[in-house]
C-alpha cells in the first residue's frame, strides 16, 4: 500500500448526496480477479453512454478534472455494498482523498486499506471546499494527514479527526495483516480459552 502524507491537487466537485458503490463501480466490473485496472470504469454509468462514449458533462470527463486526485462529495458517500472494487477504482483513476460530511462505514474502512484518505468535515467546510473544487486547477486543495488539516485555496484551514491507528498505518503504508500476525500468541490463547468457554463455536 502506498503511503499517504500530504497531497495538493485538483478536487472534483460531486455534490450529489448518497453516491453509492453501484455508482462508483457498477457490478459488471466486479468480475475481475485483480485489484488493478478498474479506473477506466470508475463511475461508469455516469461517465459513459451505453455505447461507451464519454458524457462530456460528467465532471471527470471535463478537461479540468481528468487528473483530479481529490473528490469533494455530498453526504453519505460510498453507501451500499462492501465491494472494495470501489476504492480500487478510485485509486486506479488517481483519487487519493475523498472529502465529505459523512461516509458509509464499510467504504470508509476499505479506503484506509488502499492508501486513500477519507476526510470527514462539517457542512460549512464542505461548502468552501466545494467552491474551490468548482474552480478546477485555479483552486488547488491541500490535504495534510500529519497535521490533520485540509487547506482551501484562500488559505482557510480545516482540522479533521482521524483514528490514530489508521493514521499510523496510512502514513507508513503498513500492511495490517503483518501487524496482527505479530499478535499470534494472543490469538492462540484466545482460541485455547474459547475451546473451553464456547466449545460449539
Amino acid at each position: 500500500m502506498d503511503k499517504f502524507t500530504t497531497l495538493t491537487g485538483v478536487a472534483a466537485p460531486m455534490p450529489l448526496v448518497n453516491i453509492d458503490t453501484d455508482m462508483i463501480i457498477p457490478k459488471q466490473f466486479l468480475k475481475t480477479i485483480q485489484r488493478s485496472g478498474l479506473g477506466k470504469n470508475l463511475f461508469d454509468e455516469m461517465r459513459y453512454t451505453q455505447d461507451g462514449q464519454e458524457i462530456p458533462e460528467f465532471v471527470l470527463n471535463q478537461p479540468a478534472y481528468r487528473k483530479a486526485e481529490i473528490i469533494v462529495a455530498g453526504d453519505n458517500f460510498g453507501c451500499g455494498s462492501s465491494r472494495e472494487h470501489a476504492p480500487w477504482a478510485l485509486l486506479d483513476f488517481g483519487i487519493r482523498c475523498v472529502i465529505s460530511t459523512s461516509f458509509a462505514d464499510i467504504f470508509f474502512n476499505n479506503c484506509f486499506k488502499n492508501g486513500i484518505l477519507p476526510v470527514v468535515l462539517p457542512q460549512e467546510a464542505i461548502d468552501v471546499l466545494m467552491d474551490d473544487a468548482r474552480k478546477g486547477a485555479n483552486a488547488r486543495i491541500t490535504v495534510d494527514l500529519e497535521s490533520q488539516t485540509v487547506t482551501a485555496s484562500d488559505g482557510t484551514s480545516f482540522h479533521f479527526e482521524v483514528d490514530a491507528f489508521k493514521k499510523h498505518c496510512l502514513m507508513n503504508g503498513l500492511d495490517d495483516i503483518g501487524l496482527t500476525m505479530e499478535k499470534a500468541s494472543a490469538i492462540d490463547s484466545f482460541e485455547k480459552k474459547n475451546a473451553t468457554l464456547r466449545p460449539w463455536a
Binding site: I106, N110, F165, D176, T180, A184, I187
Partner: peptide
C-alpha cells in the same frame, strides 16, 4: 454480523480476527 471489504477478508483468512473499534 457485518460486511467487510476484500482486504479484511484476507485479514480474517490469515488471522481469524479483525481490527475493529
Amino acid at each position: 454480523a457485518h460486511g467487510i471489504g476484500t482486504s479484511e477478508v484476507e485479514h480474517v483468512l490469515a488471522t481469524q480476527t479483525l481490527i475493529q473499534r
